[in-house]
């Protein structure tokens, strides 16, 4: 679950609206429609990327463009020809910091925590060639901060990163399921269930999603959907 550092922006498919928006210039590295490249959910120009602790003494990312792609979180500075791509499974938590902190000089930002960081340097810049530690892989705990010039974009960035993180479930979780498969069966596809299992699952859904005996529902992001049945039940 590493961080990939290279000189090139990976092939990415930027959505139409990002091309049209005058705020987001067109970058020669990007493909359009027919491409099979990973799709970018959100493109945010002019974002400062800060690592704490720093990746290395002579690798200060500074300001660049943030591509929240379905494959990876990619930050790229055309001026420095520096691309830093983070795999979603390595991001343990991410959050919106509304007040900022000392590192961002009080600017609100998206905060991320990397549980264990492995840096893979794919194509080195000249600066990195002089860094004695840059060979091979390094591992350390790390935080990152993304500070966009346009602070109104924070929520959209947070949402896009959340959506993309959910596309990359942990491989370990699936292994756990398999190990426990003898007695604890959790199919994702309802068609895999036999009749008895289906009945049990429907019962579960009904007991958990039916009218709450304790009342006090709410706070759901989509209450109309989830509690549509409950409302009907109460009316009957």
């Amino acid at each position: 679950m590493p961080i990939h550092i290279s000189n090139e922006l990976p092939d990415l498919l930027v959505p139409e609206e990002a091309w049209r928006s005058p705020a987001n210039g067109v970058n020669g590295h990007l493909h359009s429609a027919e491409s099979t490249s990973p799709r970018v959910r959100h493109l945010q120009k002019s974002v400062s990327l800060l690592f704490d602790p720093p990746l290395s003494s002579n690798l200060i990312p500074g300001k660049g463009d943030l591509y929240i792609a379905e494959s990876q979180l990619v930050w790229y500075s055309p001026e420095k020809r520096l691309s830093i791509a983070i795999d979603y499974p390595s991001i343990g938590i991410h959050a919106i910091s509304r007040q900022g902190d000392a590192l961002t000089e009080g600017k609100p930002h998206v905060y991320g925590q990397l549980d264990s960081m492995v840096i893979v340097r794919e194509e080195r810049t000249d600066a990195m060639d002089h860094d004695g530690e840059s060979d091979g892989e390094e591992e350390q705990a790390c935080e990152f901060r993304l500070v966009p010039d346009d602070l109104t974009a924070l929520d959209a960035m947070f949402q896009a990163i959340s959506d993309c993180a959910a596309l990359h479930p942990d491989p370990d979780a699936e292994e756990d399921d398999n190990e426990e498969g003898d007695w604890y069966y959790t199919p994702d596809d309802p068609q895999e269930l036999n009749g008895l299992q289906e009945a049990a699952l429907q019962h579960l859904d009904s007991v958990f999603e039916g009218p709450n005996p304790l009342g006090n529902l709410g706070g759901n992001s989509n209450p109309a959907d989830q509690f549509a049945d409950a409302t009907e039940d109460m009316e009957q």
Binding site: I93, H94, A95, I96, S97, Y111, S162, A165, D170
Partner: peptide, 28 residues
């Protein structure tokens, strides 16, 4: 974790969770 004080909304990856403490009165 003083730097986390300013965090208001957060997304926690399922695989990094050790425990979730629940409000007892809401658990049947």
């Amino acid at each position: 974790y003083p730097h986390m004080m300013s965090v208001k909304n957060c997304f926690v990856r399922g695989s990094v969770v050790r425990y979730v403490s629940l409000p007892a009165q809401h658990v049947d």
